[in-house]
Design a protein around this nucleic acid. Structure first.
Length: 304
DNA sequence: AGCTCTTCCTGAAAGC
DNA sequence: TGCTTTCAGGAAGAGC
């Protein structure tokens, strides 16, 4: 499943060859995952690719018109989310077309950028560059850029489960199920922990764990669990270094206890029951002290 | 605010 | 063997 490290790997691959290339033609198969196929077909042919960047799990291909009379120079961003099974591969035009290939971007050098997506959970849309800020504004911070203080602030007042927050793209952009579980394992935190009940030390540990796991996963070119491959069709290797994800029943690499799997935030969540102890039931005051009172106290201390 | 449930989709795996 | 059922999951939306 493509999450931040996988998308980063794809983007780095595309960056090596796409910038400077012109798009000659766009062809579609199924388009039910494309917001505005007509606009893509209208604006991209003839455009030149200027940049390839990543925003969370989104790939952003910046283009500019090459038509000399186009004034002001029109610029568009092609936004692509790989969903569960999306692949964006650069291949020669004469290479055979695999099943579930739904979009072809024919380039001016005899190659094509092909989008393949078995389950079509991905998404594709074209936006004017002027609308890019609005699009990215709906997403949270980059996990590799956020500082420790800011990270703590996003979590310490939330009553949601820590796993749900890690997966929430409006909090942090780019983390999915694999890296949420792997980060929580490294931070020794149970996925069902309520964020506001976590200590500052635990939050700082989680911040470090998230960055460490993502950076390491990028170094190993992502995790190939089912369909993921990079822009050259190569699989990643971080799946061999997963410590809990899809290791249910296997021994914990730290303490040998059997890895368990539970549903948290509607997702399979893998954890070590010994290293990541379950949250203790909330102490309920007889007079009905609201659980948030403790958090408010912490906030006040923080303000000082 | 935050939870669960549903929807989208296909193919692998489990069940009968 | 061969069919049917279940499950996986990112994100968005409904409803509680």
């Amino acid at each position: 499943m493509p999450e931040l490290p996988e998308v980063e790997t794809v983007v780095r691959g595309l960056c090596l060859t796409l910038p400077g290339r012109a798009i000659v033609e766009v062809r579609f198969g199924k388009t039910d995952f494309v917001d505005n196929p007509a606009e893509i077909a209208e604006h991209l042919p003839g455009a030149r690719i200027a940049s390839v960047t990543r925003f969370g799990k989104f790939i952003c291909i910046g283009t500019e018109s090459t038509a000399p009379q186009a004034a002001p120079r029109s610029q568009f961003c092609l936004i692509i989310h790989l969903g569960m099974t999306g692949q964006l591969k650069l291949m020669r035009s004469n290479e055979s077309v695999t099943r579930h290939t739904h979009v072809f971007f024919v380039l001016d050098d005899g190659r094509e950028l092909r989008y393949t997506d078995t389950r079509r959970f991905g998404r594709m849309l074209l936006i004017a560059e002027s609308g890019l800020a609005e699009f990215t504004g709906r997403l949270g911070m980059e996990p590799l850029e956020i500082g420790a203080e800011e990270f703590c602030r996003y979590f310490e007042l939330r009553r949601a489960r820590v796993k749900a927050l890690l997966l929430d793209q409006k909090v942090l952009r780019g983390i999915g199920n694999i890296y949420a579980d792997e980060s929580l394992f490294r931070a020794r935190l149970h996925p069902a922990r309520i964020a506001e009940n976590m200590t500052r030390k635990q939050l700082l540990g989680l911040h470090g764990a998230v960055r460490q796991v993502l950076a390491e996963a990028i170094r190993f070119r992502g995790s190939s669990i089912s369909d993921y491959v990079d822009s050259n069709g190569n699989r990643g290797e971080f799946q061999f270094r997963h410590r809990v994800y899809q290791r249910e029943g296997k021994p914990c690499v730290r303490c040998r206890a059997k890895i368990k799997r539970v549903i948290v935030a509607g997702r399979s969540s893998h954890f070590c029951p010994r290293c990541q102890p379950a949250p203790r039931g909330r102490k309920r005051s007889k007079r009905g002290l609201k659980p948030s009172a403790a958090a408010k106290t912490r906030l006040n201390e923080h303000e000082k």
